[in-house]
Structures are given as C-alpha cells and as structure tokens.
Amino acid sequence: MNKSIFNLQFSIFNQKEKGQALIVVILTLLVVSVVVLAAASRSITDVKLSQTSEESARAFSAAEAGVEEAAEKIRAGTIIIGADNNVTLPNNANTSYVVSKQGSSNLAFLSSTPLAGDTDDFQTYLANKDDFSGSYTGAICLLWGNSGTPSDSQTPAVSAVILYKNPSSVTRRQFVIDSAASARNNFTPANNDASCLKQVLALENNLTIDRTFAFAHKMDIPVVDGYSPVLLRIRLLFNKDTAHYVGIKPVSGALPSQGYKISSIGSSGQTARKVDVFQSYPSLPAVFDFALFNDSGTLSK
C-alpha cells in the first residue's frame, strides 16, 4: 500500500520534473531569441544609420558641387539668373541650384573676413551693379577695427574711395578717416557719431552674427554736381599685424544688392541637403586704387 502510494507519488513527481525541463528549455530559447533579435535589430539600425550618414554626406557634397559650378559660371559670366540647373552626379546623387541676385537691404553689410594689412579691399555697391541706377544717396556709417583696438601708431585709419557716375563719365572722391587719438597727416578724425552704433546685432547685418567695432564714422554721400555714387571701396591704412573687420551700415534706406545668392540642393537616396551661399559681386585688387604705384626703390625725377 505504502509502496504503491510511493510509486504513485514518484510517478507524479517524475512527470512534474519533465514539465520543468521543458519550461527551462523554452525559457532558454526565449532568452536566446531575444538576444539574437536585439543584436540583429541593432545591426540593422547601424546599417541604416550608416546608410543615412553616407547619403547625407553625399547629398551635402552634391549641394556643394552645385555651389562650385554656379560660382564658376558667375566668374565666367555664363550664369543665367533665376534658371534651374540640374546636374546628375555619380553614386545616385544629383544637385539642383538656382542663382539669384540678393535683394537690396537695410541691413549692415559686413566683411565676412577681416582685412589684413593695408592691401585688402572691401567693396560696397552704392547702385545697381548692372546699370548703376538706383544709387543710395543717404548717410552711411563706416565701421572698422576689432573691438578693443588701442589708439597708437598702428591704429588703422580708413581710406574710403567713392566712385560717382553720370550718364557719360565717372569721377572719384577720396576720404581718409583717422581713428587715432589725434588725426594724423591732416586726415579727418573719426566722428564716432551717436547714430552709428558700434555694436551690430545679428539681426542687423548680412552675416547674422553679433559684431562690435572699435571705430565709427558717419558720412553723407549725396549726389554731387549730377554725379551719383555707385561704388565704395574701403582699405585700411597704418595697419600692420592685426586683421580688422569692417562694415557699412545705411543710416536710412537700403543698400542695393551686393552679390549673388546661390541656393543649391543636393540629394542622394532619400536624403537632401540645402546650401545657401552668398557671393559678393566682383572686386578689383587694391592696386587699382592707385594712380601711381612704385613698388621698388625711390621714386625720383
């Protein structure tokens, strides 16, 4: 009797053990599956990310390729303003770019790079480039010098040359504004007019960055004897070692277009990138501001 009972119990217990093993096996398989699936999922995600990253880089490069082609066409004088340009590139990439003229703007026009020494020029159109119509004839603020520039022998002065035009001829006026404590060489001392704030906020300039200048000078550029201002060229004097930013700010009204806007969209696969580039209108080297330039030895007669 007891043995029977024992056998029965053992039998039942044995059957329970067999069930437990099955559960253990199933749980084990489940855990392994989860691990495998997680690893696979991560791997797939990595591949997708890698693909996206590659496509993104390819799209960005394609957009830049469009910018370069547009810039070359501008340089060669073959660009068609406003036209869509589509270019198919290798590796399933392509680019589409449009060149337009930047509109007139009442924002300050700042140099994107500092002017080195006394040979870099910063050029601002005061009239439409194509036909020199629509001159800006109000007052402007000349802004120059990095914030904190001391007043010493190397304090930069500014040479501002304005070209004026009437229907048949061109003339030129030059101003030299000195920022030193006492103006050198009979130059005009900087007036640091209160309406010419030296701090230009990001929303107030073409570069959308905050910039503070050391010196400011307000000057009028009216029509003179039937000649309208068309071009302003700025160069620093006495500047040796430090490159300085410069800028022009219209006191009232808007400056005309200063260059081209190149909008280029590059795409690769499902990814697209857009690059907007401003390219200023052509500017001549500083040597062409001189009537006589003798770069070697004494000028004698």
């Binding site: 960005f60 910018v67 810039a71 340089r75 140099s111 994107s112 790079t113 020029d121 570069l207 260059g259 990138r273 857009k274 690059v275 907007d276 580039v277 401003f278 390219q279 200023s280 052509p282 500017s283 001549l284 080297p285």
Partner: peptide
C-alpha cells in the same frame, strides 16, 4: 576680378 567673398548657410 580676383577677389570674391563667400559665406554659406547650411540647411
């Protein structure tokens, strides 16, 4: 012309 100023905004 030999001088052109460029700056770019990436979107």
């Amino acid at each position: 012309t030999i001088v052109n100023i460029k700056y770019k905004i990436v979107n």
